[in-house]
Amino acid sequence: MKTRNLRIFVEVVRQGGFSQAAKVVFATQSTVSKAVKQLEDELRVPLLDRIGHRSSLTAAGEIVYRRALKMLADQEDLTAELEALRGLKRGRLRLGLPPVGSSILFAPLFAVYRERYPNIEIRLVEHGADRLAEILEAGEIDLAAALLPLAGAFESQEVRREPIVAVLSAHHSLARRKSVSFADLRRIPFILFESGFALNRIILDGCARRGFEPRIVARSSQIDFIIELAASGLGVAFLPALIAENRRHAGVRTALLAEPNMEWRIAMIWRREAYLPESTRAWLALTKECHQALPPILQSN
């Protein structure tokens, strides 16, 4: 059923005849008559009683007219809504962020995003980076922050690179060192994040390359609690330098983890070849804009 034919039929009813409708739709009277006839042939019912130069609705015509008004209104709404999406006047941002680093890297962006796009609904999911990748792959979110390198069919936009530091009690014998290796730490218990946190994978892979498996004495999803455990002397924890600098604690000291591939590389990721809504593209653009301007004090070379 052609929308144009419906629109012409509605105008014939509104104007009370073919010649008057032709003027409104900027068409010839024969074109208007043909459009109505095509609609009647397609529906297999007469829609109009033609009496001289006037036309009135049949019973079937009244039904089609009522439905046509709704269909044409829905089409207008659809067009307007899509244009609003393109103009970022409506829509939603389905975003996944990990607890580690998000308060520093991403929290300030929300205020800017909200100011620029006040009508975009933000749906935020928080998990460890590995779990977020699974949720993203399942299509439950459109965009996530995760650590690189990452297995899976994802595209990425890097946000920040940071060296990883060991976090030790201020009273530990290694606390005055500027850098430490896994060889220095292998006899010390490890304090790690809960499963699903990609930082764990980086640390444990590094230990495996050095030929040992660390003794893990505690796990937590809370950065402040992990730092407190390290301050108490329970073991050594690991954080990106940026996070450790932001969470300074009198009871701990940090030392650069001097090992190959010990870098915290956080990026925004999305499914390869997936459609990215305009709201998502706007977040990517904002992330790039803001983090290019960050001071590189703690970034690794």
Score class of each variant (00 low, 15 high):
K2Q: 12
V10Y: 08
G17E: 10
K23C: 00
V24M: 11
T31L: 05
V32I: 09
K34F: 12
V36M: 05
L39A: 05
E40S: 05
D41C: 00
E42K: 09
L43C: 06
L48F: 11
S55C: 08
L57F: 05
A60I: 00
A60N: 10
R66H: 09
A68G: 11
L69P: 02
M71G: 00
L88M: 08
R92E: 15
L97Y: 02
V100P: 00
I104Y: 10
L105N: 01
F106I: 03
P108E: 08
E115R: 13
Y117D: 02
A129M: 00
A129D: 13
D130A: 11
L132W: 10
L132I: 04
I135M: 14
I135K: 09
L147G: 06
G152R: 04
G152F: 06
Q157V: 01
E158S: 04
R160Y: 15
R161P: 00
P163K: 01
V167R: 11
V167F: 14
H172Y: 06
K178G: 14
S181E: 13
F182K: 04
E194A: 09
L199Y: 09
N200Y: 05
I202P: 02
I203V: 11
D205Y: 05
R209T: 03
R210D: 09
D224G: 07
D224R: 12
I227C: 11
L229I: 01
A230I: 05
S232G: 13
L234T: 14
V236N: 15
V236I: 15
L239W: 15
L242S: 15
I243T: 15
A244I: 03
G251Q: 13
G251M: 12
V252T: 14
T254L: 12
L256M: 13
L256E: 15
N261C: 03
I266P: 01
R272S: 14
L276S: 13
P277V: 05
S279Y: 11
T280E: 08
R281I: 01
A285S: 08
C290V: 06
H291Q: 04
Q292E: 12
A293H: 09
I297G: 00
